[in-house]
Design a protein around this nucleic acid. Structure first.
Length: 217
DNA sequence: CCCTGATTCGC
DNA sequence: GCGAATCAGG
């Protein structure tokens, strides 16, 4: 396997996402953990909490220099703390590529689920699936605001338990629609929750989670 | 032992 | 540039 632009991009994303080198290697396939680490360093990716680091570069144990200290003194700066931290707001450029107008993303039905819900390919999923309800900046009144929301206490086997929003937030609740018989979710959310198993090659985007998407602060 | 990332160095 | 081998901490 070679490091194509695509794979490099995946590496960057997964690495910055906090995945371990092993996980990334497995995800990419065809590369070892070491390959991932090596590439990450060559790319200049910021290293996250590493098990061994805080010390000054110890003498290479391999060469085993008997008495001669070191011929190439690299003058290690004691405290190079001020490293230009490049913030990565994960805001990819618009990429207004005139040569390649984005093809109309047509939801492709992969199969039909037991309850009649339509399975989609992962690539057809919208990024954060259930759009999180508007965030409140101030705590809402517990009573009126949450009155019509399906709370944890309202859950039973007949209603959809798909979470809306994030736990702990005032307006966190559950879908509450009629559940697909035999499933914890309604037909609609079953379509999101249960996807046809596809070969690894086809699995591009990260698996959708039954939440309002990754927490963004 | 397992895991982790860092580093080295032959290719 | 690549990555196996190696190192070293948890």
């Amino acid at each position: 396997m070679s490091w194509t632009d695509e794979r490099i991009d995946q590496l960057k994303q997964l690495w910055s996402k906090g995945m371990t080198a092993s996980q990334i290697a497995e995800e990419l396939g065809g590369v070892s953990r070491n390959a991932v680490i090596g590439k990450a360093h060559r790319l200049g990716l910021q290293s996250r909490p590493s098990p061994v680091k805080p010390n000054e570069p110890a003498p290479a144990a391999k060469a085993a220099p008997p008495a001669v200290p070191e011929k190439r003194v690299e003058a290690p700066i004691p405290r190079p703390v001020a490293e230009p931290v490049q913030s990565q707001p994960a805001a990819p450029a618009p990429q207004t590529n005139a040569t390649q107008p984005p093809p109309p993303p047509q939801p492709q039905i992969r199969s039909v689920g037991p309850g009649g819900f339509l399975r989609q390919g992962p690539g057809d999923m919208q990024s954060p699936i259930p759009p999180a309800p508007p965030r409140r900046l101030v705590p809402a009144k517990p009573s009126a605001e949450v009155a019509d929301k399906t709370s944890l206490l309202d859950l039973n086997e007949k209603i959809c338990k798909w979470p809306i929003g994030h736990p702990g937030e005032p307006d966190f609740h559950f879908c509450g629609k009629n559940a697909n018989p035999g499933f914890p979710y309604c037909v609609e959310h079953c379509g999101v929750a249960y996807q046809a198993q596809l070969p690894r090659r086809d699995r591009r985007p990260p698996p959708p989670l039954p939440f309002g998407g990754p927490r963004i602060r």
